[in-house]
Amino acid sequence: MEDHIHIFTHIHPAIPVSSLIKNIKLASSDMIKRNRLFDHFEGWQKGYGAFSVNYSSKNNLIEYIKNQQEHHQKINFITEYKRVLEENGIEFDEKYLF
């Protein structure tokens, strides 16, 4: 997808999600810039979204991620992201989303 990525991973509970995301962003930004992979890449956005799922939902989530291009032809990312937040009772201010 051109405007977001999905990362499906399992991390030890002692590792803060923020540390994982920080390390991914730093390492990938360095690699992208060093190898000149994207002409107009200026870095990742400041924020991120992280969601946990139970183990029994693992296969459904993997299929969801695999089918992102097709899926986002039906519903755009921003609309879907807001829907997920609302369905899970997560309060948000739109000015901080994107």
Rank of each mutant, 00 (worst) to 15 (best):
L97T: 00
M1C: 12
K95E: 08
E87I: 12
T9K: 14
E80Y: 01
T79P: 05
I21M: 09
V53W: 01
Y96F: 05
I5Q: 10
K66A: 03
S29T: 04
I7Q: 12
Q73I: 10
I90N: 08
E86G: 10
N23D: 14
A27M: 12
I65A: 00
S19T: 12
S18L: 03
L20E: 02
D39L: 13
Y96W: 04
I32L: 03
T9H: 13
G47W: 07
I24A: 11
I90T: 05
I15L: 13
I62N: 02
K46R: 15
M1I: 12
N35Q: 15
E80H: 00
L26E: 07
K33Q: 00
F98E: 09
H6L: 10
P13F: 07
I78H: 08
N54D: 11
T9E: 14
S52C: 00
W44N: 13
G89L: 09
I32G: 01
F98C: 05
I24V: 11
D93N: 07
K25D: 00
S28K: 12
Q73F: 13
N88S: 03
D39K: 13
I90S: 04
S18A: 11
Y64G: 01
D93F: 03
G89T: 00
G89W: 01
Q68W: 06
E42Y: 03
E86C: 09
K74L: 09
A14V: 08
E91W: 14
V53S: 03
I15H: 10
I62C: 09
N54M: 10
G43V: 11
H10Q: 15
K74I: 10
I75M: 07
N60T: 00
D3A: 15
K95P: 09
H4M: 04
N76T: 12
D39R: 12
R83H: 01
Y96V: 08
H40A: 08
E91I: 13
M1E: 11
I90Q: 04
K82Q: 04
D30Q: 12
R36N: 15
R36S: 15
D93H: 05
H40D: 07
K25E: 05
I5K: 08
S19V: 10
Y81L: 03
L61W: 01
M1Q: 12
I21K: 06
H10I: 14
H4P: 09
G89Q: 05
L97S: 02
Y55H: 11
L26C: 08
K74W: 06
M1K: 11
K22F: 01
N54W: 02
F38V: 15
F8G: 05
I5F: 09
Y96K: 01
K33L: 05
H10D: 15
V84W: 08
F41I: 04
K22H: 02
R34E: 01
D39V: 14
P13Y: 00
E70K: 15
L85Q: 08
W44A: 12
E87Y: 10
I78R: 09
I62W: 07
F41D: 09
L37D: 13
K66C: 07
I7A: 12
P16Q: 04
L20A: 02
I5Y: 11
Y64Q: 05
I75T: 06
F41A: 10
I15T: 13
L97I: 01
S19K: 13
S52H: 00
E70V: 15
S28N: 11
I5S: 00
F51W: 06
F51I: 04
